[in-house]
Amino acid sequence: MDLDTLLEKINRLEYHQSILLMMISKSDDQFYKLIVEKSLSRKDVERFLAMCEELTIALEEQQAEGFVYFESLYRNLKDSLHPNLDAKEVIEACLRQKLYLPLMLELKKFVK
């Protein structure tokens, strides 16, 4: 495949991506939209999901111990996010898409 053909395919993919973003902007799949908007890789997303699993377990453990204040979990999320992501937009997107609801509902309390 020559360079011109490759560039044409990349341009077409970018155009199709912009159309897909417009299509999903009307849906509740806001986290998926964020992935595309911020150009995250599969590895970035897998890392984020694994982190959410760990934070969910930590939340459940802390709740079982009687904790009611979870700012440390929020800081952990915020500090571990991909540089292209903002904690507030991630939490809001996850809430709209109903991902990790108990965790995100608690973390939302610390969004400024």
Rank of each mutant, 00 (worst) to 15 (best):
L20R: 03
F48P: 01
K9M: 13
S25K: 00
M23Q: 15
H16R: 00
Y74E: 03
A58K: 14
L13I: 09
N76K: 12
L40M: 08
K43E: 15
V90K: 01
S41R: 08
M23D: 12
A58C: 06
I35L: 07
L21M: 08
S25L: 02
S72R: 14
L20N: 08
E61P: 00
C94T: 01
Q63A: 15
K88N: 09
K88A: 05
E92V: 02
K9E: 14
D86V: 13
E53L: 14
D79T: 12
Y15A: 12
P83V: 10
E53A: 11
D29G: 01
K9W: 09
T56S: 10
I57P: 02
S41W: 03
L81C: 12
E37L: 03
Y69E: 15
E92M: 05
E92I: 05
V45M: 00
M22F: 00
L81W: 06
L13P: 03
D44E: 03
L21N: 06
N76S: 14
C94D: 01
L34W: 01
Q62N: 07
V90C: 08
D79G: 12
E46T: 11
C52S: 11
Q62T: 03
D28G: 00
I19L: 14
Q63H: 09
H16Q: 07
T56C: 03
K26Q: 14
V90I: 09
Q17V: 10
Y69H: 15
F31I: 05
E53T: 13
E89H: 05
E54L: 10
E8P: 00
I91H: 01
S27F: 06
S27P: 07
K9Q: 13
E89F: 01
D86R: 09
E60A: 05
A87G: 06
M51T: 08
R75W: 08
E46Q: 12
F31M: 12
L34S: 02
E54G: 02
A50Q: 10
F31P: 02
C94S: 06
A58R: 11
M22G: 15
K88I: 08
E71I: 12
F67D: 09
F31T: 01
K88P: 01
E92R: 05
P83T: 10
D86Y: 15
E60H: 04
K38E: 13
V90S: 02
D29Q: 09
E8V: 04
Q30G: 02
N76T: 13
T56A: 05
I10N: 10
S27Y: 03
E60T: 06
L73R: 03
